[in-house]
């Protein structure tokens, strides 16, 4: 297949830029650069994502991924985790569980996301998803739940979430 993906994330914990190359559907290799807002450290990591499982049906796709990354200058900075999703053209369910270590703290975070497409667009149309994301990590015993708007057109995806405590959660992605 051979595709490139460029991503940018920004939330209460960090700002990240991430590029990866997918030689085939089973795995991708990439590099990210992040500025940690808690420790105010910046570092780059090499990342590896592996598709553990995929199930296609006429109307759905289900995936399970292993995700990992290690700091280029300091291997103490690393993370590993699982992420999965099940998706139809109308519904989306996704989760992730990730352990992050290094840069002065350890963090385990779980997320769960539910989404519905209010209308079904054709290929090339603007696709809209209304989602709810819930997140729990070691920084806060309480679960944070907030609405997310996902807009998706061609190779571009924009995802914006907001919670009064954690502020904006923004994810941009472009595939080429």
């Amino acid at each position: 297949m051979g595709g490139h993906t460029l991503m940018a994330y920004s939330n209460a914990q960090a700002d990240k830029i991430y590029w990866h190359y997918t030689p085939n559907i089973k795995y991708s290799l990439g590099i990210d650069y992040q500025e940690d807002k808690i420790t105010e450290q910046s570092f780059a990591s090499a990342r590896f994502t592996y598709l553990l499982h995929r199930k296609n049906t006429a109307t759905s796709q289900r995936n399970l991924y292993l995700k990992s990354g290690v700091g280029l200058n300091d291997s103490d900075n690393h993370f590993y985790g699982l992420a999965g999703d099940w998706e139809t053209r109308r519904l989306f369910v996704g989760f992730s569980a990730q352990q992050q270590s290094g840069q002065g703290y350890d963090l385990f975070e779980q997320t769960f996301k539910l989404g519905v497409a209010p209308y079904l667009g054709d290929y090339g149309d603007l696709h809209t998803w209304l989602m709810i994301e819930t997140k729990k990590n070691d920084f806060d015993d309480r679960r944070t739940t907030y609405p997310v708007l996902r807009l998706f057109k061609g190779g571009a995806l924009v995802e914006i979430g907001y919670h009064k405590k954690t502020d904006w959660d923004v994810h941009l992605m472009y595939r080429f």
Partner: peptide, 16 residues
């Protein structure tokens, strides 16, 4: 085709 649920899938097919 099975599993073709989003534009990313469609774009990949068109590209191939």
């Amino acid at each position: 085709v099975q599993g073709m649920v989003c534009d990313f899938c469609a774009r990949g097919i068109e590209k191939s």
